[in-house]
Nucleic acid binder design. Sequence first.
DNA 1: ACTATTTCCTGGATGC
DNA 2: TGCATCCAGGAAATAG
Length: 306
Amino acid sequence: MPELPEVETIARGLAQRITGDVIESVWLGEKPEPLKSPAREMAEVLERSRITTVRRMGKHIVFDLQRENVARALSPAKVTPRMRRGSANKSGLAARTVQAQVRPERTQAQWIVHLGMTGRLQVCDPQAEILKHTHAVLKLASGRELRFVDPRRFGRLSVAQAGDFNVGGVEPLEVELDHFGELFHGRKTPIKSALLNQKLLRGVGNIYADESLFRAGIRPRRRASSISHEHLRKLFLSVKEVLQEAIALGGSSISDYVDADGEEGFFQLQHRVYGREGNPCLVCKTPIKRVGSRGRRSPCFPQCRR
DNA sequence: ACTATTTCCTGGATGC
DNA sequence: TGCATCCAGGAAATAG
């Protein structure tokens, strides 16, 4: 269940290993499930592209790609919506100028990977055994392979033109207090649901929502709009604190999460409520119960809540 | 414009 | 031992 800290850890590991490498060829599994973009389009974009950056956006891993093509005329039909938008304020003159220029076309695109719950990206030797549930294999010029494995198939792969990909929501580690407070203004939904809503805050999942709320002393089912300014400030600080501590420890290894090097994280040892149902609360010793069911499970905070 | 619920998917755990 | 059922959970789709 990779959330922000796990995805950050994975993206950093991948960046270290494959930045600058070139994707030579691509194999995509026949089942199109994890593919949001058509397989042919995805392969076309990926093949012969250089990976210039690997970074995280919310829970997504974004690979920035660059390809130098042989010079070819840029016909009007090939002008992308993005280019058209960009040149619209220059009354179309700019577009014509671009067409007139004769130079190698530099294509910039992105490969976007969402790991879902059980998705894994591994850089490995081509000889390494192909695991069951391998949905994509990228052959790299360095001789290695980047493989996407995802048993539960909640992961998603897609490609986009550079700059086109955007997940709404703000980065929790970048947002400022005022903006953070505004996110929850007038929302009747439970604060935990709001924290999980990627259109508001991107990257927070079940583990870090629970941990942040516990540290801030706010019950998960509390209506978002009813939280005092003072408690919103506490939550703001605890979200950042929890995420930063988790990144520092390489994320939380629950079930089978491992980073790009196959190493486990250690933040699960710091969890104060997540997965501790039945155990005594670390603050007031009362056993932590659970409320909800069927995917909506939350620890029920004891006395020491708010 | 929101909010709540359902659906997707498989392996591991649990129950009889 | 074997078979059925439950459960985890992010986010898109659907319903209210």
